[in-house]
């Protein structure tokens, strides 16, 4: 603030360089090595792209033909909704399981531990097949009192557990087991004083978790959850075994017929890359949203971003009275 400028300018030392009197100029370090390395990397990259683009064996015509094919779009739609729905189930259930595992109630704790133990301890492929062929194990889904003939609900398994529902259940439950551990780590990363302060204000445990602990835990939870989402995007390919048609299954169907394995896999890779890139946007938005209040925003990481923010910074530094914030 204005009142602080005399002292602030000296320790801030951003507007004017250190030790710089009226007559002296400061020469910043020149990173020649970086420029050389960047040039070398760029040359290699151009070479690589050129050789890939010119490679007849990659059949770019086939790639171009299939990259916007209906079949691919249909698979893409399945992959997308399955990923979104499975992550929603996984995260919702994961939060519940995490809170249960941290509960003081031994019954809840044991149930949650058993859930994580089973769904994290068995292969996902087995779980998908189990849900997909549950109809072979149980013809009917009954809800009633065990060992009596009293039933409240009786449904045919195969009409309820369609391939899509089975896929969603399998992926969602499996994800919940992993997500619960991520959420638990996030909750435990929040200082115990936060919950104490909330309790001292008369907030009940559930409200404290929802309003105070979870929003702060989100900062820790989001990056690994971004990983999980990207993983899920590709794991949906596993549901081909119960004939749900995601992107990867459809691609496999095509190259099983035309034998163009590599070009078709390039098509798949292009789309997965596009999806993963698109997922980065909501993630960085969420990270900023839950980073509220924790000092400066996460630094720009990409070279492009750095170039932009770097330029912006340089402008603000040379501008009048850099924003040194008063703390007094």
């Amino acid at each position: 603030m204005a009142a602080l400028t005399p002292a602030g300018a000296v320790c801030g030392a951003r507007a004017t360089a250190p030790h710089a009197g009226e007559s002296r100029t400061v020469v910043p370090i020149r990173h020649w090595g970086r420029w050389l390395a960047a040039a070398a990397a760029l040359t290699s990259l151009v070479g690589l792209i050129g050789s890939l683009a010119g490679n007849k064996n990659l059949h770019w015509d086939i790639v171009g033909h299939y990259v916007f094919a209906d079949l691919v779009f249909n698979g893409l739609a399945t992959t997308l909704w399955l990923t979104a729905a499975a992550m929603a189930v996984g995260l919702g259930l994961g939060v519940l399981v995490a809170v249960m595992r941290l509960s003081s109630n031994p019954v809840l704790r044991t149930l949650a531990n058993a859930f994580v133990w089973i769904f994290r301890g068995t292969p996902l492929l087995v779980q998908i097949i189990f849900w997909g062929y549950a109809g072979a194990l149980y013809k009917h889904i009954l809800i009633g009192i065990p060992f009596t003939h009293i039933t409240f609900l009786d449904m045919d398994t195969n009409t309820v557990l369609t391939p899509a529902v089975a896929a969603l259940l399998a992926l969602g439950l499996n994800e919940a087991a992993y997500a619960s551990e991520i959420v638990r780590a996030g909750i435990q990363s929040v200082d115990a004083g936060q919950a104490e302060a909330a309790h001292s204000l008369g907030m009940r445990p559930a409200l404290t978790t929802r309003r105070i602990v979870l929003p702060q835990a989100m900062r820790v939870i989001i990056p690994p959850l971004g990983n999980e989402t990207i993983n899920m995007l590709k794991m949906t390919a596993l549901v081909s075994v119960i004939s749900a048609h995601d992107l990867m299954s459809n691609i496999q169907d095509v190259y099983a017929q035309n034998y163009q394995v590599i070009p078709m896999l390039v098509v798949a890779s292009i789309w997965y890359l596009i999806l993963v890139t698109a997922l980065g946007l909501p993630q960085s938005w969420l990270e900023r949203r839950y980073g509220r209040g924790t000092a400066p925003a996460t630094p720009a990481t990409g070279p492009l971003q750095r170039l932009v923010t770097g330029a912006a910074l340089r402008i603000s530094r040379t501008g009048p009275a850099a924003s040194t914030d008063s703390k007094g």
């Binding site: 929003p215 702060q216 509220r292 924790t294």
Partner: peptide, 8 residues
Amino acid sequence: RFNLFPHM
């Protein structure tokens, strides 16, 4: 340690 809620 104050224990203010940092996200508010």
